[in-house]
Design a protein around this nucleic acid. Structure first.
Length: 701
DNA sequence: TTAGGGTTAG
């Protein structure tokens, strides 16, 4: 019998609310502890009526509405209030609601305590708690609880229990546990269950046991898209990219089942630096997907970002926003590197605001991505602010700040960060060494670079990768030690690649070393015969030596092979728009003003002693117009454009697709001096930060 | 109930 108690209107609205706030629920529980609301009127032995009362109780209904971590304080208050109603609290229906709510509010341990205290232990309780452990990444808790439940409490695991415990095995790579559970599954004849079968595939595939996974897959009475995705994910995770792709293509060809968001996410590891045709295939799957969700959007954005297609990633992100899909932390962490790579600073900054607004910090991955975005957009100071404000830092955070200082030319700071990282107890990994050696290389710190290379191999016992070797060659060669660099290559235990020889050839251009340069070029033309940049480097070496006949020979080689020189291109952001300039470009709507500004600047520059550096460019016919005049390089056009469009205190940020030439570098130093502007240029190698006539690279690049 | 998505170099 429930007494007809008149509810105060405010309290009624709280109880009826479908989305209780912690505050409103606390109010309810405090009020409930002072009034009966019919709860004390629950008859002690009302049988079926008692059940009905349990479900109708406002307190129990309020428990039911606690579904997210923000409701946890309110839920705990409700729970303590229920202790005043022992009959209600001991009812299995109320207990299951409490356990379910605690699990949903992110308190698996609380749910477990309730289970332990409960005399009526049922499989359904068991399943909820295991799932809660798995959802919170507490895989070992899930497994030990499973063992405890089945052995000590004689609980019967069912077709709902096994997928969860097997998921715990798959996620923790616990193959032995998976095999034992498979035995139990077989005894109970549950291996023909679709959900159980799918998780068994996941266990075997994730642990690299492909024959067992395939056997499960082949022998299943019924398969669905999850079965296929589990196989694909296993191959992709273990580097068997072709097999993952073949399986995906087979599914597409059969048209059954239809690939879904999970397929895209499963194949993602196989989509890193893949062929463009594969990226296009994934985009086709994505476009045809009828039930796109946040996972499919995130996976497609990540596919673009991992394949050096940052513009496409940014475009897709815009489409996602237009479609009204709210980005989550994973989306933002995927799009931030794309912002950094494409210098989409305006978007990057907006994402930062979004993160702060949605209170998504602290989030280690997100903060690392944010720091990297700022560094890659030229804002070292903001990157540093993010780094300093982080509560918790991992090796990725340290690597990011080391590489940020390194690519901005602050080698000694990068070294200080590296040493600080080691002192803080974080073990440097392979990328940490790559970052620090690269930082030393940019700053000309040869001995320090060698020290870190030795430290990596001798103290940390890390095997250098081809990237480390390329970095060392760059360090040695660019500092003028060309013979040492050459010997280093010859003694390398792995076959030198394009990057290794490329670093040497570039240094040979700087130091006009014809002999070693020709040797490097010879290797490069065999390795990458279509790459225009190396022909240009060789031609520059000949031009510097005044060997014009050979310059023409190289040019003819390029013409015969149909190799086109990559036209220099610079991008700048102005009021949310990206403006692109090409060498000698006259197509920009404000071209006339840009050239007029440049003319004025050149007069001032020449007064300061600037002489156009024509030594290498003079005979570069592709850089001349019809009248034989040298075409203006794109970065000069970009800087003139920004000078006429922005206020004197606005810093100028330019991103280029080639390395900066000596002439433009000299011009930028002087322009920064006469206009009192900060100019930051990101070329394909590093950042140049020009302030008051001085560049952060110290003219060493 | 099952699969599956994020950060660091060059």
């Amino acid at each position: 019998m429930i007494a007809a108690v008149v509810q105060p209107p405010a309290l009624l609205s709280v109880i009826r609310s479908s989305n209780p706030t912690p505050l409103s629920l606390l109010f309810l529980t405090r009020a409930a502890s002072h009034r009966s609301y019919g709860l004390s009127a629950v008859p002690h032995n009302a049988g079926g009526r008692h059940d009905e009362d349990c479900h109708n109780s406002p307190l129990v209904r309020a428990v039911d509405r606690c579904r997210s971590p923000s409701s946890l304080p309110a839920l705990r208050a409700l729970h303590s209030t229920l202790h005043h109603h022992p009959l209600l609290l001991s009812h299995p229906a109320v207990q299951i609601k409490l356990i379910r709510a605690l699990a949903a509010c992110g308190d698996p341990h609380g749910a477990r305590r309730l289970f332990d205290a409960s005399p009526a232990k049922k499989t359904v309780f068991f399943n909820i708690i295991i799932r809660s452990y798995v959802d919170h990444g507490l895989h070992l808790h899930a497994l030990s609880f499973f063992v405890d439940g089945t052995l000590r409490h004689q609980l019967k695991a069912d077709n709902y229990t096994f997928p969860c415990v097997l998921k715990a095995c798959a996620a923790s790579n616990h193959l032995c546990g998976g095999i034992q559970i498979h035995g139990a599954v077989t005894k109970l004849c549950l291996d023909s269950d679709l959900f159980v079968g799918n998780t068994l595939i996941a266990v075997y595939a994730r642990c690299g046991r492909f024959s067992d996974a395939s056997q499960m897959f082949d022998e299943m009475p019924k398969r669905d898209v999850v079965s296929w995705n589990a196989m694909i994910a296993g191959y992709a995770k273990h580097g068997q990219f072709e097999r993952a792709l073949d399986l995906c293509k087979e599914m597409v060809a059969q048209q059954n089942p239809t690939p879904d968001s999970g397929t895209l996410a499963s194949i993602l590891p196989a989509m890193s630096r893949t062929e463009i045709a594969n990226v296009e295939l994934m985009r086709k799957l994505f476009d045809e997907m009828s039930n796109k969700n946040i996972v499919s959007w995130n996976a497609m954005i990540a596919i673009y970002a991992n394949n050096s297609m940052p513009r496409e990633a940014v475009d897709l992100f815009s489409k996602m926003e237009i479609a009204g899909i709210e980005p989550d932390a994973v989306t933002l962490a995927s799009i931030l590197p794309a912002c950094g790579d494409s210098s989409a600073f305006t978007l990057g900054r907006r994402i930062h605001q979004l993160i702060e607004m949605k209170r998504m910090r602290p989030n280690l991955v997100l903060e690392n991505a944010l720091m990297d975005m700022y560094a890659n957009c030229g804002c070292l100071k903001t990157a540093r602010e993010i780094f300093d404000s982080m509560n918790w830092k991992d090796v990725v955070s340290w690597n990011s700040i080391i590489s940020a200082y390194g690519m901005h030319g602050h080698g000694l700071d990068a070294i200080a960060f590296f040493d600080q990282m080691v002192k803080s107890g974080i073990k440097p990994d392979s990328i940490a060494f790559l970052s620090i050696i690269s930082a030393c290389s940019h700053a000309g710190l040869v001995n320090q670079g060698k020290h870190y290379f030795n430290l990596m191999t001798e103290h940390y016992h890390l095997s250098p990768t081809i990237e480390h070797y390329a970095c060392m060659v760059d360090l040695l060669a660019r500092s003028g030690n060309l013979n040492e660099a050459y010997d280093f290559i010859i003694e390398m235990p792995i076959k030198p690649n394009e990057r290794v020889w490329g670093a040497l050839l570039n240094a040979c251009r700087i130091y006009s070393n014809m002999e070693i340069g020709l040797n490097a070029a010879d290797h490069l033309f065999k390795l990458v015969p279509e790459q225009s940049g190396y022909y240009v480097l060789l031609s520059n070496i000949y031009a510097r030596a005044g060997r014009w006949e050979e310059v023409m020979v190289v040019r003819e080689m390029m013409i015969n092979k149909g190799i086109k020189k990559l036209p220099g291109c610079s991008k700048v952001e102005l009021w949310n728009d990206v403006h692109t300039f090409y060498i000698g470009d006259r197509i920009h709507p404000r071209s006339k003003e840009i050239y007029e500004k440049l003319d004025v600047l050149m007069v001032r520059l020449k007064e300061l002693g600037y002489v156009t550096e024509t030594e290498t460019a003079l005979h570069d016919v592709e850089e001349e117009d019809k009248e034989g005049h040298l075409l203006v390089h794109s970065e000069k056009l970009a800087v003139a454009f920004m000078l006429i469009n922005t206020s004197p205190e606005t810093p100028i940020r330019i991103t280029m697709n080639l390395r900066m030439c000596l002439d433009c570098h000299q011009a930028m130093k002087l322009i920064s001096s006469i206009t009192q502007r900060e100019i930051t240029i990101k070329d394909t190698n590093r950042f140049h930060h020009f302030v008051c006539g001085v560049c952060s690279c110290g003219d060493y690049w």
